[in-house]
């Protein structure tokens, strides 16, 4: 187990390092960042002086070496726009995004898994068709559109929920629903197909033959066996969930990592972009590691190596 974790950690470090190098190369090929954080009446000589001071005039390998040296010490430099430690700026936003993602996952588990189970057990009934239709639509409706509609109905018309920002539990409702919508649809469909597969297995037939009641069969035998693919996919989809958070956070003015990243990209605030890439890929790999550990618990046959 320890050897496994160590090798996974080494791999993770490599993955994160490669992502950062790739993004570093890409941002340096992009436009001039100096223009975007300086006032418009700046004179050409001042622009050049600032480029010089920030090291943007140095040869690329030198800049890269400096970046790697800093990154190894956890120093991604200072945000060009906000004049603050870039990593600190990013880490400050991480809890908000994790809260949003966690509540979306929770909502998904509460809604999607039961939906998937019910549609599988009641296959080809009206419930199944309605449920399937709902998931297919859930997958097709763009999140940003859903978000705007919810704000219009629940904030402007009914005034039940705040339009955006972070604060009370009420602020969390609409962003989580929007973020969970697409995710739930995927998970519900996956649960359904995994359940269908499991329901056809021999041991289920045996269990039935033993005279176990159907709810017991479903709960004890099939659901646990279906859990593995569900957890796998959920783990893989966490990355997409973080991606979805970009849009949700922008619409609901949620002070999270996704919104910061989009802004940093638009502002060419490269230290922040790199710090965000670091935090996002690290978060994602850690979550996947946890998913792997969860396997062992779900299925004792899986030995981590």
């Amino acid at each position: 187990m320890r050897a496994y974790l160590l090798s996974r950690l080494a791999q993770t470090a490599l993955v994160v390092f490669l992502s950062l190098s790739a993004v570093f190369a890409m941002v340096r090929l992009g436009g001039d960042p100096v223009l975007l954080f300086m006032p418009m009446d700046i004179q050409a000589k001042d622009v050049n002086e600032i480029r010089q001071r920030l090291g943007f005039n140095d040869p690329l390998p030198v800049q890269y070496a400096r970046f790697v040296g800093g990154a190894l010490r956890g120093d991604f430099g200072e945000s060009l726009r906000y004049r603050r430690d870039a990593l600190g700026l990013v880490l400050e936003r991480l809890p908000a995004t994790l809260l949003l993602a966690a509540s979306a996952v929770l909502l998904t588990l509460v809604v999607a898994v039961p939906l998937g189970v019910v549609t599988a057990v009641r296959r080809n009934t009206l419930v199944d068709h309605a449920g399937t239709l709902a998931t297919v639509i859930g997958q097709a409706v763009p999140g940003f559109w859903l978000g705007l509609m919810l704000i219009y109905v629940f904030s402007v018309q009914l005034r039940w929920l705040p339009t955006g920002g972070m604060g009370s539990l009420a602020h969390l409702v609409m962003p989580s629903v929007v973020l969970a919508a697409f995710f739930s649809a995927r998970i519900a469909r996956l649960t359904r197909s995994a359940m269908l597969e499991a329901l056809g297995e021999d041991y289920v037939l045996t269990a039935r033959a033993k005279g176990l009641t159907e709810p017991r069969v479903v709960a004890k035998h099939t659901l646990r066996n279906s859990a593995i693919p569900i957890v796998t996919l959920a783990g893989l989809e966490i990355g997409q969930l973080l991606g979805g958070a970009v849009i949700t956070e922008t619409i609901f003015a949620w002070p999270g990592l996704g919104r910061l990243t989009v802004q940093a990209l638009l502002n060419r605030d490269f230290p922040v972009v790199l710090a965000a890439v670091f935090v996002i890929s690290a978060t994602y790999t850690v979550i996947n590691l946890l998913v792997d550990v969860l396997y062992g618990w779900l299925d004792p046959r899986v030995r981590l190596r």
């Binding site: 993955v15 790739a22 991606g243 990209l265 890439v277 996947n288």
Partner: peptide, 22 residues
């Protein structure tokens, strides 16, 4: 395949957007 892993460790939309911005 390692490269593929690297890429998968990044949200699709965010990745496409980053590339596009650059």
């Amino acid at each position: 395949m390692r490269l593929a892993d690297v890429q998968l460790s990044f949200p699709f939309i965010l990745l496409a957007m980053t590339i596009n911005a650059i």
